[in-house]
Design a protein around this nucleic acid. Structure first.
Lengths: 195, 195
DNA sequence: TTCTTATATTGAACACCGCTCATTTATGTG
DNA sequence: CACATAAATGAGCGGTGTTCAATATAAGAA
C-alpha cells in the first residue's frame, strides 16, 4: 500500500507529533515549521499535510499534548501535596511553565483564525485544569459561598497566569522583580482569606 | 538627493510607522508584514529596511507607539478619576486593550531573539505604566508598608494583565466567564485590603 | 549652465514559509 | 500475473524577511 516503512497511520501520526513537540520545545512557536518537522523525521512535507491537514491543526495537537502533560503534573503534585494545597497548585503551574517555556508559551502564542470554531475536546481540556483549582477552592470556601467557586477559580488561575507570563517574557526581570511565584502565592492567599 | 517626494527622513519614518501601526491594528501580529506596509504607502520594500533596519525594529516601534497611547489613556483617566482610583486604573487597562485588541496583543506577541538586548527606552516605557500604579498604591498603603509599594504594584499589574489576556484570547469565554474586569477589580480590592 | 557628489530609492535575488495535488511507489488481493 | 488501493512524494504557487548592486534625483561646486 505504498508504505515505505511499517508505520501504521496512527504510528505515523504519533511519530510526527512527537517530533513536532520536540521542535516546539526547542525553538518555540515563532520558529516552528512543518517543513522542519518533515525534515527531521525523514518524510516529505506532503506527508505532514496528509496526516494533519494544516499547520494550525498540527500546532493544536502539539499544544494539546503539552496541556495534558501540564495538567498531569498539577494533578500529581496535588495528589502528593500536604496541607498547603494552594501552594502546591501555584508551584505546579510555575514549575511546568518554567521547565518548558517554549511549549507553555506556544499554548498562548497560537491563535486560530477568528472564524474557526474551537476544535473537539478543546473545552474539556481547559476545563480540566480549572476544574482541579475549582475543587480545591470549593473545599476552602464557606458552605454559603460555594456557588462562587467556579468564578473564583477562573479568576485565580488568571491571576497566577499573569504572574507566570510576566516571569517568562522578561517583564518582571525588566522591572526588578525576582520572585514571581512568591508574589502569585501571596496574592492567592490574600484573595482566599477575603472570601 | 534622490528624494522622490518632499519627505524628510523623519517624515518618512513617521509615514511608515503610522501605516505600520494602522496595519497592526487591522490584521494583528501574525498577519503583519513589512511588504504590506510598503505597498500601502507606495514605497518599495527596500525603503522600509533602509529606515527601520529589520522587521523586529519596525514592530518594536509600532509597539512603542501603542504603549505610549496606552499609558496616555491610563494617565488621563487617572487625572479625571474621582475617589476610586483603583477602579479607574483597572478600567483604563481593560478599555485600551479591548478597544485595540490587535495592537495591545502585539505588545506581548512579539518577542525579540533571546540574545538581543532590550532596546533603548524599553525599560523607561514599561516602568512608566507600573510607576502610575505604584504611586496610587503608595498613597493607599500604611506608611510602614510603603517600601512594598513597587513590588505590590508589579504584582497587581500582573494580576490585572492575566485577567485581560484571558478576556481577549477567549479563555474566559470558553470557561463561561463574562465579567473579566469585574473579577480583576474585585481581586485588586481584596489584595489591597489585606495590606 | 554643467558637472560632481552624496544620498534616497529601488526591486531582483535568495532562502525560507504554508499549502496543493498530480504523480509515483509500494502493498495486498484475486 | 494484473489490478486496486492506499501511502508518500515533491515541484510549484504565492507569500515572507532580508540584502545590496544599481539607479535616480537633489543639492552644491565650477
Amino acid at each position: 500500500m505504498g508504505r515505505r516503512s511499517d508505520h501504521s497511520r496512527a504510528e505515523l501520526e504519533e511519530l510526527i507529533l512527537a517530533e513536532a513537540h520536540a521542535l516546539m520545545a526547542e525553538v518555540g512557536f515563532a520558529r516552528f515549521s512543518a517543513r522542519e518537522v518533515a525534515k527531521r523525521i525523514g518524510y516529505s512535507i506532503g506527508t505532514i499535510y496528509n496526516v494533519f491537514g494544516s499547520l494550525d491543526r498540527l500546532v493544536l495537537a502539539v499544544n494539546s499534548r503539552t496541556f495534558i502533560a501540564w495538567a498531569g503534573l498539577v494533578r500529581a503534585r496535588l495528589d502528593a501535596a500536604g496541607a498547603d494545597r494552594v501552594a502546591a497548585l501555584v508551584e505546579a503551574y510555575f514549575d511546568f511553565a518554567e521547565a518548558n517555556p517554549n511549549l507553555w508559551m506556544a499554548i498562548y502564542d497560537h491563535r486560530l483564525p477568528p472564524d474557526a470554531p474551537f476544535p473537539e475536546g478543546y473545552f474539556r481540556q481547559r476545563a480540566e485544569l480549572t476544574g482541579l483549582v475549582e475543587a480545591e477552592i470549593a473545599a476552602i470556601l464557606l458552605p454559603a459561598k460555594i456557588g462562587t467557586a467556579a468564578a473564583l477559580a477562573r479568576s485565580l488561575v488568571a491571576m497566577v497566569h499573569g504572574h507566570c507570563v510576566f516571569a517568562l517574557n522578561g517583564t518582571f526581570a525588566l522591572l526588578g522583580e525576582t520572585d514571581a511565584r512568591g508574589a502569585a502565592l501571596a496574592r492567592a492567599r490574600e484573595v482566599l482569606a477575603a472570601q
